[in-house]
Design a protein around this nucleic acid. Structure first.
Length: 814
RNA sequence: GCCGAGGUGGCGGAACUGGCAGACGCGCAGGAUUUAGGAUCCUGUCCCGCAAGGGGUGGGAGUUCGAUUCUCCCCCUCGGCACCA
């Protein structure tokens, strides 16, 4: 049999005709399985690195089909976003045209790999029938007060000319173009994800089937810390200043307060201070510092004294209030109590300005010569709290403060609200209208979608092209009918992708975004598959939106994705594949030369799918050779004359039959456990090797060979579907292998009469022993001791102890 | 700095709840077949050693009859976060 593209195409056509990937979400006779691969951003054609994602998903979907599940495996396009618009500016091609062209090409590629989807459910986020419901989602959030507009210092990329979410800023640079991000004060739309911080955090615990590292990343991102908000009375001023600290146990060591330059109380504090000008100059200087100044690894701590004093509520002591450049307004209260003896940053600052350092925590065991001790320990010089360990002191001091009403225990989160507005064209318009009389007015749901106009000019002006289209922004107020102006910002694409998994269930529904009852039957997604790069952004936004919809009663489940699998990257020459590095492996030549199955098999065989793997063409060749060897077995089977003898199996037959059953068992376990495709494939290789070996060594009856060959191709089917179908048909199969059951093994076939075990002396292997599994322990020990090798090593002495681990080893302790 | 994941032949990687380290594949070597090349088949391949033997899972200790696996310390690589009080 010649394995050619013709076979690939034949089966791809046939699957399409038979609709094996078409999911009937209303059918309930089979157990359901929702297998979802993260939908791609259609920016260019796919290479083998991308292919890994889809091949894994396809293998899972097909495996589940073979097990009799009603499998839903849909695909769609995360089609809004910057790259399309950048192309438009550069090459004068409309983003829509560019995007749809890419979608066509990628679809073709996926199909040529035999990756199957229910294409009737295809969704594209840039189409009005989809983004209409993204806008609907916005309105629901708005109605609940979870979408709001505020002026804020926001991240601004001067190259992309747009605002970025915190999550899109990677060490101070734009995620997309690596331009240094600036801070600008602009009026922007936010989603109040912080309201869900606690639930997003605590529900991570129910996600047992998520990779630990993803959960940890989210946990760190949410960044919960427990502490106390302490009110420090200010001399000559009515209002106290509130500081947040996680270390109340160090309060007796607080020697000054420091505020952020943005702190709202600064102006008032320096109003009548003799240091007024100095402070104002300092504030002005940090305000105008270049954006890069914030990013330098450890920039110099600087500050200025306000001339004011606060009072330590525990000691009554007067401590100076400073403005310092290292205090973040965004976290806590923008003001902190400084304990130089126990905080490296405070220490650095105190040194510079000769502020007192007062140790109040003694390390328990650690001997340190550093002047700063940041760990916990035992309190000293802390009045009646002295001699208490830190953890107890935190409790006691907090209690005391709460009694005296000078402090209150609180939780703080690092998580910020999600900035969703973009001053860009290629996104879903934010469905809001501004009216002089009524102010901010939401577009009525019935008027959705707010359609993105298609005829526009693409100019990188820093404003959305929408601001230049009068016919778009000029509108009437939905409330009073007066002239009004539409919001011209569009939504972050992460909004589009935060709910798409719900839409697949009823993608053509025109009255609702999704049908609650069906969604509740089909979700959570049984298996979600995608790259780790989405560990924080996409996955957390989706969890947030899901919880929000749950609160509204639109869905009944807590979490959208029950199981998450994050696959590793495929690298070439040690680097991520990219056009600029010129190390992209394009699938086309592979398909031409070896066919889709060889590529699929190799991608899965390369290594554990969750880890990065290095692409090697030679490895691909190995898979090709293996498939040839497997096909040859099938051909030998066809030529096998066959004969009807009822005699017991001979030795080769027994070995082969046993291996076949064992392989079914092992491969099934590998699939179930955690997608160990690499070991699953290696076991099938072993079976093929064994079959060839058995045939070489003696006579193997047709029935035994037949079982082995069928086993090989059934087990391979999720990985090499075309070839499996072809061979199955060649051998007389009438129905698609994906309509047939996954093979099952017979436990009694696994039993063995003679096995070889290792004989160890003092933990080192010295000899081997073939045992009969019916032998008793004592018999086996005796046989082991009588081995000539062991005999000579013992030199006549008797062993101290003999340990027998059933079916494995005998260890003789001399 | 903090958090997480790792470190096993020439390479990708196996090894279940502590039980014969290196499955499977690549590469390499030898042989068969072939006009030659390619392809295919067989054999070998952790290291040192002709052998007997010895060493060996990042390094060091420990627990154990026995450790890639468990405990402690240290080193290195990758990923995430990072002035978060």
């Amino acid at each position: 049999m010649d394995y050619t593209r013709k076979i690939d195409e034949k089966w791809q056509r046939r699957w399409e005709e038979q609709g094996i990937f078409r999911a009937d979400t209303s059918a309930t006779e089979k157990p359901k399985y929702y297998c979802l691969v993260m939908f791609p951003y259609p920016s260019s054609e796919l290479h083998v690195g991308h292919a890994r994602n889809y091949v894994i998903g396809d293998a899972v979907a097909r495996y589940k089909m073979m097990q009799g599940y009603q499998v839903l495996s849909p695909m769609g396009w995360d089609a809004f976003g910057l790259p399309a618009e950048n192309q438009a500016i550069k090459h004068k091609i409309h983003p829509k045209e560019w995007t749809l062209k890419n979608i066509r090409r990628i679809t073709e590629q996926m199909q040529s790999w035999g990756v199957g989807y229910d294409w009737q459910r295809e969704i594209t986020t840039c189409m009005p029938e989809y983004y209409r419901w993204t806008q609907w989602l916005f309105l629901q959030l708005y109605r609940k007060g979870l979408a709001y507009r505020k002026e804020a210092l926001v991240n601004w990329c001067s190259s992309c000319k747009t605002v970025l979410a915190n999550e899109q800023v990677i060490s101070g640079e734009c995620e997309r173009c690596s331009t240094e991000v600036e801070q600008r004060n602009l009026k922007q739309w936010f989603f109040r994800i912080t309201d869900y911080a606690e639930r997003l955090l605590s529900d991570l615990d129910i996600l047992d089937e998520w990779p630990e590292r993803v959960k940890t990343m989210q946990k760190n991102w949410i960044g919960k810390s427990q502490g106390v908000e302490i009110s420090f009375p200010v001399e000559d001023v009515q209002e106290p200043i509130v500081c947040f600290t996680t270390r109340v146990d160090t309060i007796y060591g607080a020697t000054f307060l420091a505020l952020s330059w943005e702190h709202p109380r600064v102006v008032e504090l320096i109003k009548d201070s003799p240091h007024k000008e100095e402070v104002a100059a300092f504030v002005e200087r940090i305000k105008n510092r270049p954006p890069s100044a914030r990013l330098i690894e450890s920039f110099e701590k600087e500050g200025v004294w306000t001339g004011k004093y606060a009072v330590n509520p525990m000691t009554g002591e007067k401590i100076p209030i400073w403005i310092a450049n290292y205090i973040l307004m965004e976290y806590g209260t923008g003001a902190i109590m400084c304990v130089p003896a126990h905080d490296a940053r405070d220490y650095e600052f105190a040194q510079r300005y000769s502020l007192p350092v007062r140790p109040v925590i003694r390390p328990v065991e650690t001997v340190t010569d550093s002047p700063v001790y940041e760990g916990e320990g035992v309190l000293v010089d802390s009045a009646e709290f002295s001699r208490l360990p830190s953890d107890q002191a935190k409790e006691k001091i907090a209690e005391r403060m709460e009694e005296k009403k000078t402090g209150v225990r609180v939780h703080k989160y690092k998580l910020r609200d999600w900035l969703i507005s973009r001053q860009r064209y290629w996104g879903a318009p934010i469905p809001m209208v501004y009216c002089e009389g009524c102010g901010e007015v939401p577009v009525p749901e019935g008027d959705l979608p707010v359609v993105l106009p298609e005829t526009v000019q693409f100019l990188p002006t820093g404003q959305s092209p929408l601001t230049l289209i009068e016919s778009f922004y000029r509108t009437k107020c939905p409330r009073c009918g007066a002239d009004a102006r539409r919001e011209t910002d569009t939504m972050d694409t992460f909004v589009d992708s935060s709910w798409y998994y719900l839409r697949y269930i009823s993608p053509r529904e025109t009255d609702v975004p999704f049908v609650t009852s069906t969604v509740n039957e089909w979700l959570p997604v049984d298996q979600y598959i995608g790259g780790v790069e989405h560990a924080i952004l996409h996955l957390m936004y989706s969890r947030f939106v899901n919880k929000f919809l749950q609160d509204l009663g639109y869905v009944s489940f807590d979490e959208p994705f029950a199981r998450l699998f994050t696959q590793g990257m495929i690298v070439k020459d040690g680097a991520k594949m990219s056009k600029s590095k010129g190390n992209v492996v394009a699938p086309d030549y592979i398909l031409e030369k070896y066919g889709a199955d060889t590529m699929r098999l190799y991608i899965l065989f390369m290594g554990p799918p969750e880890k990065d793997a290095e692409w090697q063409d030679e490895g691909l060749l190995g898979c090709w050779r293996f498939l040839q060897r497997a096909v040859r077995l099938a051909e030998m089977l066809i030529e096998h004359p066959g004969e009807a003898t009822e005699d017991a199996l001979n030795e080769q037959e027994q070995t082969l039959a046993r291996k076949a059953h064992l392989t079914i068992k092992d491969v099934t376990e590998d699939m179930e456990k955690s997608f160990q495709f690499n070991t699953a494939i290696s076991r099938i290789m072993e079976l093929v090797n064994q079959a060839h070996k058995s045939l070489n060594e003696g006579y193997v009856r047709k029935s035994v060979l037949e079982h082995a060959v069928h086993t090989v191709f059934f087990l391979l089917a999720p990985f090499t579907p075309h070839l499996s179908e072809e061979v199955h048909q060649m051998l007389g199969g009438q129905v698609s292998v994906f309509r047939r059951a996954w093979p099952e093994y017979q436990a009694e076939m696994l039993r063995e009469e003679r096995i070889e075990i290792g004989v160890l002396m003092n933990g080192k292997v010295r000899d081997k022993l073939t045992i009969d599994t019916r032998w008793t322990q004592d018999e086996i020990k005796e046989k082991a001791l009588s081995l000539s090798r062991i005999h000579s090593l013992l030199q006549g002495k008797s062993p101290k102890k003999v340990i027998y681990v059933p079916q494995r080893i005998v260890n003789i302790v001399a």
